[in-house]
Nucleic acid binder design. Structure first.
Lengths: 126, 126, 126, 126
DNA sequence: GTGGTCTAGACCACG
DNA sequence: GTGGTCTAGACCACA
């Protein structure tokens, strides 16, 4: 499904959260699709099931998945409700990054060109 | 000078690093300007001097400031080296954010307009 | 493991850094081998855990070890990058020393003989 | 006479010691030659006279200069006595450096060639 | 007065 | 159990 960097300073459960979030955003995992069972995924990745549990709970908290106790975890279809505040968070992050890019000498057109590039590149993983 | 969120999951020293980095990037703190003394800033923010010390050493490691033991800490005038590397990191972050913005329904033109807005807003703090 | 000179002008954490660096260079500590836990080593050496922590972070910064939070600190397998830079530093140091040796009456052949001796002596600790 | 790096982490008095030591070793300053008066040198370098005082005291302790109270400081002609222990110190340093050079991939012949180069280059400052 | 180092002791996140 | 963070408080070197 994906790979982890066990040597990274980033906690493993966060890496799992990010990877799954990315799969959902890129619609590799479709709305209402079932996620791998905790134990299966843990075995696949060679890590502790508790770590996957924690990642799933975090994804649920963030609204990316929902849990049916005893049945499994599923991709949450997007709710238009809670998304504006997330967009505001993203805007703040983007502002910080753009400012730093300017500081390091990139120009407005360089940045916009790069954004076009990202979007043209489609939704693929890299 | 700025405020901290002591309840945040983000370590206090990292918050201090980010805030000061931002002040330097936005040129609120000018090259070779003296930063507040470790003990003074600690008292101002209501935290332990060691925490500021740690933040300052981290900023030094990243090349944003330099330390003259016994004299103070100062803003490092930009050195061109190691800059491209940082830009590549920023591009990766920006890619992640733009992808998530698209997922949440923003369009290419919305994003670019927002970037223009940031830049037109100048280098001021918000 | 090794001993410290608490009376030395050289900070304790630097002594720890140097000693461990030497153990790594002489391959007493092998790549990916686990270093002693912070608290254990601190107790062994009779110093504060924070001092070891600081030494380990410094070693990590220099690329000699990596840290897995919650798991331990490990010897970093050599990465080829940034190596030439370090060699240049070493050459400068060596130049200074050789000049001083000449001043104190050693001859070129004495110095080279001594270097052969070091190398023939293998990688052992003294 | 020479220049200092006020931004360096190395204490200024140590920089002064090193620079003067080098001038003595390279015989720019001859045996029994008078060193610049403390206040003159301090004024030249734009630093505090106390700092020069400290450097001169340190050089005296190391045997490089001697002081005639009220008259000035003079370059100490080499005494064959105390030099063996200094050579032993230098050998230790050289051993550490050669070991690290080997670790970073230099070969015995590279190191010896570099030493020849240093010596052929004469006693000049770089 | 300034930064740098160190200690003793505490709590938290992670796996 | 492990490393990471933080506090309170101390002493030292430097300029």
């Amino acid at each position: 499904m994906f790979e982890l960097d066990v040597k990274s300073r980033q906690p493993i459960y966060e890496q799992v959260v990010d990877k799954i979030k990315e799969l959902i955003i890129n619609e590799v995992l479709k709305p209402d699709e079932k996620l791998p069972a905790v134990r299966i995924l843990a075995a696949d990745l060679g890590i502790n099931p508790n770590t996957i549990q924690k990642a799933y709970r975090e994804l649920e908290r963030m609204g990316y998945i929902y849990s049916l106790p005893g049945k499994g975890n599923y991709v949450n279809p997007q709710k238009p409700g809670a998304k504006d505040e997330r967009i505001d968070e993203l805007k703040l992050e983007l502002k910080r990054i753009v400012r730093e890019m300017l500081y390091f000498g990139m120009r407005e057109e360089d940045i916009k060109a790069f954004i076009s590039e990202i979007i043209k590149g489609g939704k693929s993983g890299d």
